[in-house]
Amino acid sequence: MSWAIEINNLNVWYSDKHILKDISFKVPKNIIFAIMGPSGCGKSTLLRAMNRLLELNPNAKVKGQVKINGIDVYNDNVDITWVRRQFGMVFQIPNPFPHLSVYDNVALGPKLNGLVKNKKQLDELVKHALQQAYLWDEVKNDLKKPASMLSGGQQQRLCIARALALKPKIILMDEPTANLDPVASSKIEELMLELKENYTIIIVTHNSQQAARISDYVAFLYMGKLVEVGETSTVFTKPRHELTEKYVVGKIG
C-alpha cells in the first residue's frame, strides 16, 4: 500500500519546550484523517510540521521525518516552497486576503507560482477551484468584489478554493469549522466528503463528534504524544487506551 504521508519519530520543540514527542503514523490515500485532542496538545503544530509552515516561528525546532511519496520534506535538498505547494492548507479563522477580489484570492497562488500560461487557463483554473469548493454558483457574478464582502462560511470555502487551485495532493485543515455557524459547518463537512475522492484530507479538530462523523482514520493526541491511531470506527467503539476512551466520552478535553 502506498501512503499519502508517512511520519517517523517526529519531534518538535518551541525554544526549550518539547511540544511533539516521537510521533509516528501513516496516512492512507484518499481518506479523511482526523487529528483530535484537547487544546494545547500539539495538533496544530503537527499539521504545520507537515508543510513546514512551522518554520515561520523562528523558535521552532524539528527532528524526524515527514515523507510524501517517499520524499522526506526535511531533506536538505528539498525546496521548502515545493513542500508547501504539495499541501493545500485551510485555517481555523477564514483568512482570505481581504483587499483582494474573490477571483484574485484563488488566482494568486497559481499566478505567483507560475502554474498557468495565460489568462484563459487561469480563468478556467479559478472557475474549477471555485466549483470544487461549492462556491462558484454563489460568487460567479461577484468575482471582482473584495473577499471581505463574503459571509464567514463563504470565506472559508473561498480559502478551500484557494488551496485547491494549487492542485495539491493533500489538504490540511486546521479546525476549519471552529468559527462557523452549524449550517456553514455542515456545508464544509459535506464538501470534505466530496473532496476525498480526489484528495487526502488531514483535519485537526478538538471536536470528537466531528472526527467521528467525517473521518475514516483518526489519531488521538494528548500532551504532545500520540496515544492512539486507527480506523475511526474502531477507535471510537473499542479504544485500546484508557485516555482515548475518556476523551471520546467527553471526560477530558
Binding site: 508543510n51 516552497t81 513542500v83 493545500g88 485555517f91 483568512n95 482570505p96 494568486l108 505567483l112
Partner: peptide, 20 residues
C-alpha cells in the same frame, strides 16, 4: 493568519513580502 495563508501557498519569501 494572513502571513500563514501567503506562505502556505508555496510562494517564495520575496514574493510574499513584496507582492502579497
Amino acid at each position: 493568519s494572513l502571513k500563514e495563508a501567503a506562505f502556505s501557498l508555496g510562494i517564495s519569501h520575496s514574493k510574499v513580502y513584496l507582492k502579497v
